[in-house]
């Protein structure tokens, strides 16, 4: 098992806290709120994409302007095929994520709660985890063709590890004193899992879920694009190969928006589910 950075979320929590600034900052200038800055940044991006192809800095034949992408997007949104594709993608994503989550949590708790099983499986997990999920594409195609199973295989394989690894970290994080206390009061195995293991591992499960959700979306779209399961990825492939440049970009934008939404939702869930948990009150390095 590798060191702590593996648990660091993509956005990451700082390894060293900076909470020393109890005092309000000295105002050198009126600072613009981050939200406004962020919106400005996004607006600037849109403006750049509008202007650069127009004035020829970017080749217009490959780079549609913002307005062209925008109108392609509007057109897409009006088509039922688009919405079917979105739903197909989301279905594969949700189903795959659910399977991976259940499997990851159950196996994680089973493996993690005893030292022997942990040690026995460590090398196997360390070998299987870095196997790129796309390595499964050929076999997924051979076995399932473009049925949803081939998409699920990729999604589940990729996101399963995210959950499992986090749960394993979480289960090992159990306070030994609490463990002894639980034993001393004669809590049975199931009760210990219910009242000790699960609550301790919960924050890790949530982090794992958030990571897995992002990975699952990537693999769902990838699988559609490469294998050809119905969904946004396939729509994108079709648009690209028929030379519909602006719609191609529009679909990429849609996948990006989906990705952002998935991130936001799971971050919110993580925060809400854990507002009571000590890990959210900040673990301050002494």
């Amino acid at each position: 098992m590798s060191g702590p950075p593996a648990v660091v979320s993509p956005a990451g929590s700082p390894p060293v806290s900076d909470t020393s600034a109890a005092l309000p900052r000295a105002p050198r200038r009126r600072s613009v709120p981050q939200v406004v800055l962020g919106l400005l940044g996004l607006l600037a991006l849109v403006a750049l994409v509008e202007i650069l192809p127009r004035i020829g800095v970017l080749p217009h034949e490959y780079f549609p302007t913002s307005s062209e992408i925008g109108s392609a997007l509007v057109e897409l949104v009006g088509q039922s095929t688009f919405w079917t594709a979105v739903l197909d993608t989301l279905q594969g994503w949700a189903l795959g994520l659910a399977i991976a989550a259940v499997a990851g949590v159950v196996l994680g708790i089973l493996i993690g709660s005893s030292r022997i099983t942990r040690e026995l499986t460590a090398s196997t997990i360390e070998f299987l985890r870095p196997i790129p999920s796309v390595a499964l594409i050929p076999i997924a195609v051979l076995l399932f063709g473009t049925e949803i199973e081939s998409k699920l295989l990729l999604v589940v394989y990729a996101s399963f590890w995210q959950v499992l690894i986090q749960v394993l970290y979480g289960v090992q994080d159990i306070d030994p004193v609490a463990q002894d206390t639980a034993r001393a009061y004669g809590l049975g195995r199931w009760a210990r899992v219910r009242y000790l293991t699960w609550p301790t591992a919960l924050p890790y499960v949530m982090t794992g879920l958030r990571l897995a959700a992002a990975v699952a979306l990537i693999l769902a779209v990838t699988s559609e694009l490469v294998i050809g399961n119905p969904g946004l990825g396939k729509l994108l492939g079709t648009a690209q190969s028929s030379g519909a440049i602006a719609p191609t970009y529009a679909i990429v934008v849609v996948t990006g928006i989906l990705g952002v939404l998935v991130n936001l939702v799971f971050r919110a869930i993580e925060r809400r589910a854990l507002s009571w948990h000590p890990s959210q009150r900040g673990e301050l390095p002494a």
Binding site: V221, S241, T255, G256, I257
Partner: peptide, 21 residues
């Protein structure tokens, strides 16, 4: 502040969809 949302957006795009582009 200016760039974070833009970067978050680019990060959220599943990288394989960029291959066709």
């Amino acid at each position: 502040g200016l760039l974070e949302p833009v970067l978050e957006f680019f990060r959220a795009i599943p990288p394989p969809v960029l291959v066709p582009i």
